[in-house]
Computed example of a mutant assay.
Amino acid sequence: MASEVDVVLADERQLTPTSTEPVPFSIFTPLQKRWILFLTGFAGAFSPLSSFIFYPAIVPIASGLGVTVGLLNLAITTYMVVSGIVPSILGNAADTIGRRPVYILALFIYFAANIGLATQNSYPALLILRMLQSAGVSGTISLGYGIISDIATPSERGSYVGIFALGPNVSPPLGPVIGGALASELGWRWIFWFLVIAGGFCLLMVVLALPETARPIVGNGSIPATGINRTLLSMLLSKIRGDENKQVQGVAKKARLVSFPNPLASLKVLLEQDLFILLLCNGIYYATGSCAQASLSSLFIQIYGYKELQAGLIYLPFGFGGLAGVYVWGEYRNHNAQYLKLTKP
């Protein structure tokens, strides 16, 4: 007859798991990850799109507002200055309050700024609204990279970045063509109405169905999101099922403190020598490229008599080259990570 101690030991062996399964890096399914990549890539496309769609219309906008092309180029300069400052603020805010609220705020500002740009009639209003437009959309690319780090392991991120970057890199070839066609056929104001429609559609999809991925808030996705971090679609489905007040079984909510975003936090990476050199080289490349791209369309219109649509077509080689380069780079990085993983002793 078994003793009481034997019975207790047998019960403990039954309650203790014999094997521990590794916790997945992210519980999002491949289909969910593809949806997240699509939405973030779509949102990220608006930052370069808002620049490149503007270039073929510089001459007609300057003529419509009664200013010189040189003065109108300041709208490009102020746009880029703001785009260099705001992402550091939005990126830090997204780490503390979540990706979804920052995406919604950024796209709403962008949506409102485009309405203002489509209806304004003065040069000062154009400058201010272009800065507001940049403030709204310039951080969407950095937010997208943050989401990739939330849902993808380091060995997967190369291909994820390659797919995500197709959104921002499709704008250089398509933006000038769209801008040139709209400016020549419907007038330059329709450039901004187009951005209102496209940006509003993107904002609607983000509000409805972009899940929260910030790891300080939802972990690997297993911690339920609450409030604005929760998608509107999930709220509606929960109300239909009648379980909006139920807790997910076995999952505890994570307490978190919301702090004011620190725009200087990201500057710490400049103290690392290799990253500083990398950022410096990319900054020089971006500065020289921006100088050429901003003046190219107006020069072709003034010197060669190009129409707005023709001026937009001259950006196609640069855009297609960027598309091919970013996709190949992503695949190479993913392959290199897999190779290092297999050959690691």
Rank of each mutant, 00 (worst) to 15 (best):
V251G: 03
T119R: 09
Q14P: 01
D6V: 09
L182N: 08
G91F: 00
V328C: 06
A93Q: 01
A118Y: 07
T288S: 14
W329E: 06
P224Y: 08
S234N: 15
N73Q: 15
D6T: 12
I217A: 00
K239Y: 07
G180S: 03
I240V: 08
F25I: 00
G64H: 07
G70Y: 07
G41W: 04
I151S: 00
V67E: 01
M131P: 04
P317E: 01
I191D: 08
Q302M: 10
I147E: 02
L271P: 12
G98T: 09
V5N: 15
P263E: 06
G322F: 04
R130Y: 06
Y123G: 03
C291E: 09
P56S: 01
I163K: 13
Y103V: 00
L129Y: 08
T213A: 04
T40W: 12
G250P: 00
G136S: 05
L186F: 13
T68H: 05
R130A: 04
G162S: 13
S184N: 11
E244T: 04
V258F: 02
K246P: 13
G144Q: 04
T40N: 12
M235E: 13
T78G: 08
S295W: 12
P224N: 11
A93V: 00
A183E: 05
V258I: 10
F194H: 07
V102F: 03
V206S: 10
V5I: 15
A43S: 14
E308Q: 15
G322Y: 05
Y315V: 06
P224V: 10
E272A: 10
F25Y: 02
L195V: 03
G66P: 00
G41D: 07
G227Y: 09
Q120G: 10
F54V: 06
G187C: 07
N92Y: 10
M80Y: 10
Q120F: 12
I277N: 06
L316V: 13
T153N: 04
C202T: 12
Q293R: 12
G322Q: 04
A214S: 02
V170W: 01
P211C: 07
E308G: 07
N73I: 11
N73C: 09
E212T: 08
K341I: 11
V206Q: 10
A287K: 01
P24Y: 15
D150F: 05
A294G: 02
P24L: 14
S134T: 03
P263T: 05
L129E: 02
L65T: 04
A125D: 07
G98K: 08
P263S: 06
T343E: 13
V248G: 06
G187Y: 09
M205R: 01
